[in-house]
Nucleic acid binder design. Structure first.
Length: 533
RNA sequence: GCCGAUGUAGCUCAGCUGGUUUAGAGCGCUGGAUUCAUAACCCGGAGGUCGGCGGUUCGAGUCCGCCCAUCGGCACCA
């Protein structure tokens, strides 16, 4: 059954090795990880790709300053990013590096194909050049600077160079039609409109090579030209799948994963992913990704994160959160409070603590704790034998039965995950926990338990509670894999075997807990002291 | 400068095509109740001139104009 369903894939941008890992990298990658895990849990064949981008003038320059080769610098920092992936518990299926032979050789093949089709041509670029910085500045920027270098103060010079260009202008109307037909190609909607607006302003061809540095992939047939880092980088999505050689072994194994369902990026690189990249894919006659999802930025205590302010949420800071709250709590915060929309989201220790306490400690963990504790107390820690599927989920008149409620919740959560509405999926799953709390508050099993004659009723109530907690833990496991596994293990119902492959709705089906199973007391999230700051 | 958003309780936000009320939720704060549970769960309360001004209308948070404030995008930022 599961194997009949379409394979799916998701990508992060590949991370630039000249940067240090920070919350932005962690955020994008965590979102992708949650989605990938949710789809695997739903029985799908998933490919989740991330990696590092290693070429370009900046890397060359940093390496020179440190007196090492660019490759050595790339090796070192790529390894750093790889470690970060492990640290975050990320389940990527591959980690591609742009300095790998498999990538470079395919980029050359792709570019050759574009040359042959006329989509890439040799042209001349003329612009304002800052000789000290060895870089061109745009015309508008040059005017702002009064035609002087912002660093040295020396006048900018008019300079010319030959570059290879990608014929982006030829794809303007095709892109507009594509956007008309695919209103969810770029999400969220605000970003879609932004791109549409700019498309209407027209498109210019874009240079894809430079000649003033050498750390990059040489242009086929013209090695003095180096392929621009961002063109090089974009191709990673296809080279990881071996698409430049459709008959090769990689493509035969991984070709089924193209196109990606989601290409998740930060808003700063939207233009390349939403316009340049689709045009290149059109030129190469490759299918379009289903959606480019551009999230916004985390800001720190109300202020933009910047090197000069020194308020970056960097890796050491993140590790402090791991130490205090745990990895899964971090993932929960990223997933439910992040800047997935058009607006930036604030990261603050106080807010983190409040979310942790109210949602994870007071809601999720407390419910698991009170349920397991009562089963321990009244039934010696053994899942009672009681029929609960048709039991009303609450005392309100139109309340659905527990099996119905769990079923509709699972369907809804599955839909939200699939649609990349991760915070909504989380909230919906948590609503099941809230429903269990309502049941306990309404029926007060702890009072009924004082009367031995009422134990069968207590059994039904607690049986439903345990089952509700189990289903919620299944549904939340893509976000908090370790903590949910802990809860499911305590309930004697770990995700494995057919649970793991039969689809999420199947795993969440009411009544999987069987009478007689040993239920252990569990409290997955402990209260911690509030931050002092 | 150009284009586009946003501005609703302390905080984060819901409020669709104007008329369900005395404008809502979560968190925070505060009173109470309770004990199965991790000072948790539950009930109640305080708190808002719905950015400002003007207009359209029988009636506007919800439409129009202007103003103020904040933010995003404007192609070589991975």
């Amino acid at each position: 059954m599961a194997s009949m369903r379409t394979p799916v894939s998701i990508t992060t941008p590949i991370y630039y090795v000249n940067d240090r890992p920070h919350i932005g990298h962690a955020y994008t990658t965590t979102l992708c990880d949650v989605w990938a895990r949710s789809q695997r849990l739903d029985g799908r064949d998933v490919f989740f790709l991330t990696g590092t981008d290693e070429h370009g003038a900046k890397v060359e320059k940093s390496a020179r300053e440190r007196g090492i080769s660019p490759q050595a610098l790339a090796d070192e920092n790529s390894e750093e990013f790889r470690k970060v992936m492990a640290l975050f518990g990320l389940s990527n299926d591959d980690f591609i590096r742009t300095t790998e032979e498999r990538h470079e050789s395919q980029v050359k093949l792709f570019v050759q194909r574009l040359l042959a089709s006329g989509d890439v041509y040799l042209g001349e670029f003329e612009g304002w050049y800052d000789e000290g910085q060895e870089e061109y500045v745009t015309d508008t920027r040059a005017k702002e600077l009064d035609y002087k270098s912002p660093i040295s103060g020396k006048p900018l010079v008019r300079a010319k160079e030959h570059n290879y260009y990608f014929r982006l202008s030829a794809y303007a109307s095709k892109l507009e039609k594509f956007f008309d037909a695919q209103p969810a190609f770029v999400r969220p909607l605000g970003r879609f409109n932004e791109v549409r607006g700019r498309l209407r302003e027209g498109l210019m061809d874009v240079p894809i090579t430079r000649t003033n540095f050498s750390w990059g992939i040489g242009m086929p047939g013209a090695p003095e030209h180096v392929i621009y880092v961002w063109i090089d980088a974009l191709f990673n999505y296809t080279t990881a799948l071996g698409l430049a050689d459709p008959k090769g072994t990689t493509a035969s194994l991984r070709g089924k994963y193209w196109p990606p369902v989601y290409q998740v990026i930060g808003k700063e690189i939207l233009w390349f992913h939403a316009v340049v990249w689709p045009a290149m894919l059109m030129a190469l006659e490759l299918p379009m990704p289903q959606c480019v999802y551009a999230h916004s930025f985390w800001i720190s205590n109300g202020q933009k994160m910047s090197k000069s302010l020194g308020n970056f949420i960097d890796l050491p800071t993140i590790e402090e959160y791991f130490a205090k709250y745990g990895l899964d709590a971090w993932r929960w915060y990223m997933t439910t409070q992040g800047p997935i929309g058009t607006q930036d989201a604030d990261f603050s220790p106080k807010h983190f603590h409040e979310i942790y306490t109210s949602q994870l400690v007071n809601t999720f963990a407390n419910c698991a704790s009170r349920t397991s504790s009562m089963i321990e107390k009244y039934f010696a820690g053994v899942m009672p034998d009681a029929e609960t599927a048709s039991m009303p989920s609450s005392s309100s008149a139109q309340a659905p039965s527990w099996s119905e409620l769990a079923g509709t919740t699972a369907v809804e959560v599955q839909r939200r995950y699939a649609n990349f509405e991760l915070a909504e999926a989380a909230d919906c799953a948590l609503s099941l926990i809230r429903a269990v709390d309502v049941l306990i508050n309404e029926t007060q099993p702890f009072k009924l338990a004082k009367d031995p004659a009422k134990l069968p009723e207590v059994a039904r109530i607690l049986g439903a509670c345990a089952e509700g907690v189990r289903v919620a833990a299944v549904l939340l496991s893509p976000i908090m894999p370790a903590k949910c596994a802990e809860v499911l293990t305590a309930l004697g119902s770990p995700i494995e075997g057919e649970f793991a492959t039969g689809g999420l709705v199947n795993a969440a089906r009411w009544g999987r807990l069987t009478a007689g199973t040993r239920i252990l007391k569990c409290a997955p999230f402990m209260r911690v002291d509030a931050p002092t700051a």
